[in-house]
Design a protein around this nucleic acid. Structure first.
Lengths: 123, 123, 123, 123
DNA sequence: GTGGTCTAGACCACA
DNA sequence: GTGGTCTAGACCACT
């Protein structure tokens, strides 16, 4: 895990994104116990309150749930996790389309380029 | 143009990327005269030597050519420019595939997702 | 039983209210013998004199009666108990109407809302 | 406005409730500008951050919106405000029913009592 | 030792 | 002067 923050976007929001990715890619699978707030905050080099805020946001979105004296856990709702993956992939694709559009490519050209690229790499 | 640099990567390389984008998307079209190094370096807030190095790299790749007493110009070789666009789009697509692969998607799923997204946005 | 007191209102009055509720809801049914003052005062964490004063008030209102050598008992006058329940419910209803009036609802709207709520919850 | 907090419930949640009431009863009508966070926090005797958290919660629920350099405002969405009033009245009614049920009254009796009380007070 | 709350005080962007 | 963010440090309930 790399804890590197860009200026211009609140740290706690970047923490939310990072944690979402970690959950989506299975670093923290469904039902897994997360490290304690204080520990993961120290690892990330941020104040525990900042990490707490990120976790609270994720909890509010239903991706996490906390058991007061025991720790925080990833939701076990597979539907939720699938939606998360779908949302994140949508974000990435939107970003790609935005960049390629800025390069002057039409949607059809973009799709063709992606298709070609994937077949080429398949070898 | 936003001149913002990420730590961890040499600035001159980031300048190369930015200039490539500007050329690819037509900010500096084929044959266009570029601003003087000193001027564009000041705008970017970098040392003129750093900008010089970026331009030299671009020149070496054939994207720019300089005329001793008159300035630097974008190549007029359309083939070169098309390749540039293709390379850049390849970079972006590679990045996308990398991210979505990390989310556990197969190449087929990635292509399907992109295709679906583009059609959806077309409405 | 929870013995929790709000500031701003004499404790003995709050004790009276709590005891009235306990009598009204049948915790102490008609004719039942109450625990000794000292015991119930200790349980509530108040001075026995304070509890004594609450009991005296209830006795004065006719809800309790004491037999010198045997203890205190809830009245057996069903009429009295029914009135108690009616008075208490009246207090609660007054409070509700006050709150909803403050929200800008007319008496008719309040009645309609209560009626609707009860039917909804009946399912 | 009385800023009095009960132990056992987080202050920021109580602030949310108080502000909801103030919005519902028209103290702060639709579109109204709220006092600055720092000011209202001082008036309530809480830390500005705590008040900020309460406001952020209300904002997330759509009851408020903030304009960064200008202040916070009540939503102008009448639908939202009507729902608020309905939710709050539902809470109050639920509380009443709970109390009267504990007094041994059935739902029918509760409705009858409210109806009677309202007619009596109409005189 | 966990999550949760609260305070105090600082800094930032914006206009 | 506004809202927003962040840190540091404290306390609490629960087990």
């Amino acid at each position: 895990m790399k804890w590197q923050f860009k200026p211009g976007l609140p740290i706690y929001q970047q923490l939310v994104s990072i944690m979402k990715n970690s959950i989506a890619n299975g670093t923290y699978p469904a039902g897994a116990k997360l490290p304690p707030v204080r520990e993961i905050a120290m690892e990330a080099g941020v104040n525990p309150n900042t990490m707490q805020r990120a976790f609270a946001t994720l909890e509010q979105e239903g991706l996490l749930y906390s058991v007061r004296t025991s720790g925080r856990f990833v939701t076990e709702d597979q539907n939720m996790l699938n939606n998360l993956r779908k949302d994140l992939s949508g974000d990435y694709i939107r970003e790609l389309v935005s960049q390629l559009t800025q390069l002057g490519m039409s949607r059809e050209e973009i799709l063709a380029a992606v298709s070609e690229w994937i077949q080429k790499e398949d070898k």
